[in-house]
Design a protein around this nucleic acid. Sequence first.
RNA 1: GUGCCGGUAGCUCAGCUGGUAGAGCAGGGGCCUUUUAAGCCCAAGGUCGCGGGUUCGAGCCCCGCCCGGCACACCA
Length: 504
Amino acid sequence: MQPENALDSSNDVVAQRIQKLGEIRDLGIDPYPHRFNVSHPAQTILDQVESLIDSEERVTVAGRLMSKRGHGKTGFSHISDRTGRVQVYVRLDRIGEDAHDLYNRLMDIGDYIGVSGTVFRTRTGETTVLVESIILLSKSIRPLPEKWHGLQDIETRYRQRYVDLIVNPGVKEVFLTRSRLIRAIQRFMDGQDFIEVETPVLQPIYGGALARPFTTHHNTLDAQFYLRIADELYLKRLIVGGLERVYEIGRDFRNEGMDRTHNPEFTMLEFYQAYADYNDMMWLTENLIATAVKEATGSTTVTFGEHTIDLSPPWRRVTMLDAIQEFTSIEVQDASEADLRGFCSDHGVHLDKGLSRGKLINEIFEACVEPNLIQPTFIIDYPVEISPLAKKHRTTSGLVERFEAFICGNECANAFSELNDPIDQRERFEDQVALKAEGDEEAHALDDDYIRAMEYGMPPTGGCGIGIDRLMMYITNSPSIKDVILFPSMRPEIIEPESTDAAP
RNA sequence: GUGCCGGUAGCUCAGCUGGUAGAGCAGGGGCCUUUUAAGCCCAAGGUCGCGGGUUCGAGCCCCGCCCGGCACACCA
């Protein structure tokens, strides 16, 4: 993309509009007034047409000028506000020479304007405001993309989301859905007697997930901090503190690859409930998602690409080992480590050196099973090696009580019966530290304070994390995570310095 | 990181086998008092992502670089 100066006066259109700005000021008009009273948002006018026509009530509406169709001494325009878009009809014989000249010659598509007038229907039936007075609320000096095709360039859409929101109507709907979803989640969790809390983003020791962190530095403390990769360890400290039911919707940061399903910063819901186990978490997860999605979109059925997904509970539950058996030929339970390795190389499953048995099983699962999990599915009971914070399974050794929820072949929730045995927890951390020493950059660091908290005693606890961005992708049928994040991470844009002769 | 595709006017896009860079919309001037992708007439608008090279001649071919998208790899 071509770097663009923020105020590039070599752009003809910009120069012309700055010229108009001067003319407007010369007429004694403030092109950037301070406030404006709106009586009827656009959608209200559309909703109340009949009574507004009958009453001949004067309405006042403000918004961005999106089109101009001049007809000599009259003109039609659409103005757009947060609620929608309404047509206005400007007539010389209604507003007078000066105002008409302002509208006709000095107002451009993209300007913010306010109009007052009565409501009528045009010959073709469109609800329209017959303008009696018109005022400029903010002059735009940079032209908007074309009215018909909108803004197509994907890079510009992400970098200049403000333009995307102005001209591509579906975009606003996605982020309204996102807002409704978050609100619905909060209502649901509040209704289950959870409290919403905020824990540190800047952490001296990161943990709660297997990932590489962003590093930063605090000047006064002269100390290294990490941007959190998960909320987990702090939320469980709050369970120790007796809050019993807590949740946080917050931003996590992982310094890893970016693709269609990964943004370096992303939004995670995590919740922890005392006296609960992973079975309770499954109930909570499927009901939370079904309820919140229903409130956000109006349905528990969503379409994602070629798939129609039914989110209504209960979701299918299958153990990891059974799932592998379902989609492959291998009997994981009885297989030796050599068998597992053989299977992996036969099936092109990529392996790092020195993988434990548990990690091998997980690799096979991810390669052979995950992509097939289209309808919501809980995969339960994971190998202990890949789950250092989960409680050992109550009946099966070598496993932990953990589940992940999959939709459309992607993980969207991760939960377990939380490990609350401080001695066991220390040993698991020590195993991780050993892995780290062997070069596993994602292994956990030992968090002494977290163990100290466990030593005071944590009740039996169920915990769960849900990726909000992934969920948003499914319910808005968005192919990329960038489509559901207002300002997705991008390589920094180089904007060339303003040339000296262009300075104001 | 690797591969493929793309970057041409403010926006959306054409541009043949290498032969002087085009359209629509937006913007400017003119006409037009119920249009809606309004219409008609006129004029204007370009570092063809950047830098090298080949060639009489490069938007097009070659090399390098920048930015993006997709796939793979990495990654709970």
